[in-house]
């Protein structure tokens, strides 16, 4: 009772990164609140899925396994989640801010009349004093999220309704195994108790999913290009540098919109959030929507013809000049001085 639940997404037998990231966060919150961490997995062919989940320190995994539960459709997943939450009364429920989580979360929160905070970038435990009511709330979930196009950051709380629900985008939280040998309890839900045939009113007729091939999120070095790179050909130079450094190539939205790079490389508010060891920003001005996705990089190099580009304010190294001259020099001197 009153535990923390993480709704885990599964595609092709693999638990989504965002779910594992949330389990990692959920474990920390559970330790702080001295409650248990539970996972909810809904899908089909889920035998041995627990081996991917227990290592994150999950005390109990609730599995609803039925061939009709994959691919995801709204109603059956909502029905299971709502009923389980009514029975178990979690204090916190977390979901990925993904195509699934953002379809399911609001539906569940509406059915339970519990608040839902979208796209959190940070989750913390804290207290709240309602001066009007003269009431103090302890151990609330602070749900911290950007809004207004990233221009403000709001801390949202749900003082009275439970569960306190939040969605978080992929890559925002860190994924960390607690213990490879950790084992908790495995509970198989009796699916027909939770879902009715009528819940399957939406039929998925066709489905084409691509595994995201580019993996900028997990790369420790990122060479990111912006509109200032100027062309797809010039972007090749970034790829060359990335190859030499063992890095991945990322891009600003302006570069993606201009066709210099593919959308799956976009970093920022409407792309992925990254926190590499080193971020090399090439021809990126540093608008808030971009920096929202990279400002936690441990080190930033900015290469820009404009000495006053906003990104320079968050850079550790500011190189003022043209990328077409600087990148070849970086390649040259890396090769010369490494090993």
């Amino acid at each position: 009772m009153n535990n923390i639940y993480v709704y885990c997404e599964v595609e092709n037998g693999v638990v989504a990164d965002v779910s594992l990231e949330l389990l990692t966060k959920g474990r920390k919150l559970a330790n702080q609140l001295k409650c248990k961490l539970e996972a909810l997995v809904i899908g089909s062919n889920l035998a041995s899925i627990e081996s991917q989940i227990f290592p994150y320190g999950v005390d109990r995994i609730n599995v609803a396994d039925d061939e009709r539960l994959f691919p995801y459709t709204t109603h059956p997943h909502t029905a299971i989640t709502v009923k389980l939450f009514q029975e178990e009364k979690p204090q916190i429920a977390l979901m990925g801010a993904t195509s699934i989580g953002r379809d399911l979360g609001p539906r569940v929160s509406s059915a339970l009349h519990s608040g839902l905070t979208a796209d959190c970038t940070s989750l913390e435990i804290g207290s709240h004093e309602d001066k009007k009511e003269g009431k103090v709330y302890e151990n609330l979930l602070y749900q911290i999220r950007p809004a207004f196009g990233g221009n403000i950051v709001a801390t949202i709380i749900n003082p009275d309704c439970r569960p306190q629900m939040a969605t978080v985008r992929e890559g925002v939280m860190k994924k960390e195994i607690q213990s490879a040998t950790f084992k908790g309890e495995l509970r198989n839900l009796e699916v027909k108790k939770y879902v009715h045939d009528a819940d399957f009113m939406i039929k998925v007729i066709e489905r084409h999913m691509e595994a995201s091939k580019v993996n900028i999120k997990n790369s420790s070095i990122i060479v990111a290009g912006g509109y200032g790179v100027g062309s797809r050909e010039n972007f090749d130079k970034l790829h060359e540098l990335a190859e030499v450094l063992g890095a991945e190539v990322g891009a600003s939205r302006a570069a993606v919109d201009a066709g210099y790079a593919d959308h799956n490389r976009q970093i920022g508010q409407t792309g992925v959030t990254v926190r590499p060891k080193l971020y090399i920003a090439c021809g990126i001005s540093g608008q808030i929507q971009h920096t929202a996705g990279m400002q936690e990089s441990a080190m930033v190099i900015s290469i820009n013809t404009d000495a006053n580009a906003p990104i320079n304010k968050i850079a550790d190294y500011v190189i003022t000049g043209d990328i077409s001259e600087i990148i070849p020099r970086m390649i040259k001197y890396y090769k010369k001085n490494s090993k």
Partner: peptide, 8 residues
């Protein structure tokens, strides 16, 4: 159910 506690 949700309340804005703080805006920065």
């Amino acid at each position: 159910p949700t309340k804005v506690k703080k805006i920065e």
